[in-house]
Design a protein around this nucleic acid. Structure first.
Lengths: 288, 288
DNA sequence: TAGATTTTGTAATAAATTTACATGGCTGGG
DNA sequence: CCCAGCCATGTAAATTTATTACAAAATCTA
């Protein structure tokens, strides 16, 4: 399913190792400036890549195109949908306008990257785990604490037994008194925050399920029963985790929606009740 | 900036009245199935429109293309970036895989929509306002409270005098004791939450600046000195504000980055100090 | 190293696009 | 109302672009 409108550039980049010498030349010529590739003729691209024209043509056909023009079209599509797989880092001399557009662009491209990379059944598994949980704790610290808080807010509406804690002592206490049936959902960009790793280990030792939304290969990732790995190539040292946080939130959106869908229509009534209870606090809408 | 690659289809539709007989034929052939147009050759399109090939070519040149292929490319661009807005809503019978990909897609397309619609200088103005503020309060309720919390966290790192409150009484007290030089940054998806509107009015009456990140035309929007209007066509009644929240966060990222850039390089030292202070709480990275 | 296989390039062919030019229809002045 | 001039449109030729068929080179296998 993901492969249908998959990111062509990513596809090419991923296929690189398995390509022959001159195919690699073509690939890197395209990756170097995809925008230009969509505008050039096959002759121009061939000369840029220093290969013959049929080689370029064959290359295109390898990537499910009927020929070169079709390939260019596909390329144009994936470019237009905001996908710059190389993140555009903000630089100190950028104007505010530039940095703003860079931030939007890199957020967008990161999201589409994650969308394509996320194992489709993983979300399903996590949803299953959440639905049958006796109790769900969302933990996060620092930048991830507002993500965890958001998660609590969202899942609370679903009438799931959720709680959110950003206090380390509370987290520890809850982990210490964990039992099978409890789910600890731990959110961390780096996956290296000691406190959280220890809490995860403690919870796990007590038989609770630990779900991690964090970086692959991190200490926290190793502890989790279920891991939603989000690898965001971020310029962490320059600025702070930004896109990773967004990705985490969207993943949680997906999970929450998954839970609702699983609960079926009988459950919509509950949501409606909550909505109605909020209505009283609002100015009436002037729309129909 | 937005008008540069503005929607080509709209452009064509608008130009219709001023076109000649056979140009109209071409236009309607394209508008009837733009997707097909990007895939057809000039000969095919000409026969569909019942005109000759040069007519099609001339038509393309009228719309700032160098020729037919270039025109197709432009068309493909505007299709890919525009077509997704509609019909990505999650439906009750969707599988979890489908809903997940829909959520990612609609988040992505909403972000690119906002990116194109956001007035470039607005961010600059807000950044100016924030930099010179004596004190900044981030307010949000419900789903927006975690957005506000996130904002506080981010701006705090910049050593700006920020605070965050989700408690209505605290908000009211702060607004009541507001003074010129204070900035109230109020975040609300609907812009209809009474409490927040009242707080905004109170703060404004006391001479504070009110910045709103909310829906255009809403009661809250009318109170603000500076308004960052985010109109997200959301199926609020089915599920909850999801994409709007993400957009809000990305806007705040842009603002935060804008502030850092304005502060200049001397300020990087401060950021580094904060980063170092966090390092002690982390497992060492195994990377270089 | 010989033979087979794969990769790459050359040259011819086919397709698509553009240009140059001719025709037809319309408009406005006589 | 008719003819000159102009604009819109089409025809056909030229040019560019893409594809195919085939041959040469490189790589691999035995």
């Amino acid at each position: 399913m993901a492969s249908a409108n998959d990111n062509l550039l990513t596809l090419i980049a991923d296929a690189m190792p398995g390509l022959s010498k001159s195919e690699k030349k073509v690939a890197s010529a395209i990756l170097a400036d995809p925008e230009a590739a969509t505008r050039s003729s096959i002759a121009v691209l061939a000369s840029i890549a220093q290969v013959s024209e049929p080689t370029v043509n064959r290359f295109c056909k390898k990537f499910n195109a009927t020929g070169f023009p079709d390939f260019k079209l596909n390329l144009a599509h994936c470019l237009a949908s905001g996908i710059r797989y190389v993140s555009q880092n903000v630089e100190a001399r950028d104007s505010v306008e530039t940095s703003t557009s860079k931030i939007f662009n890199s957020t967008i491209s990161t999201l589409s990257l994650v969308r394509d990379k996320l194992p489709p059944d993983l979300i399903v598994q996590v949803v299953d785990q959440l639905i049958q949980a006796r109790r769900i704790h969302f933990f996060g610290l620092g930048a991830s604490s507002s993500v965890a808080k958001d998660a609590e807010h969202k899942f609370f509406r679903f009438n799931l037994p959720v709680s959110f804690h950003e206090d380390v002592l509370m987290q520890r206490m809850l982990a210490a008194s964990a039992a099978p049936g409890d789910v600890f959902f731990i959110i961390s960009y780096t996956g290296r925050t000691m406190e959280l790793v220890e809490v995860a280990e403690l919870a796990k030792a007590n038989g609770a399920a630990v779900i991690g939304l964090t970086a692959p290969g991190s200490p926290l990732a190793k502890v989790c029963h279920l891991l939603i790995a989000v690898a965001v190539p971020e310029d962490t040292d320059e600025y702070m985790p930004m896109t990773s946080r967004i990705v985490h939130l969207v993943v949680l959106d997906a999970l929450a929606t998954g839970v609702t869908l699983r609960r079926g229509p009988k459950f919509q009534g509950h949501l409606k009740k909550i909505k109605d209870s909020l209505r009283a606090t609002r100015f009436p809408s002037n729309e129909a």
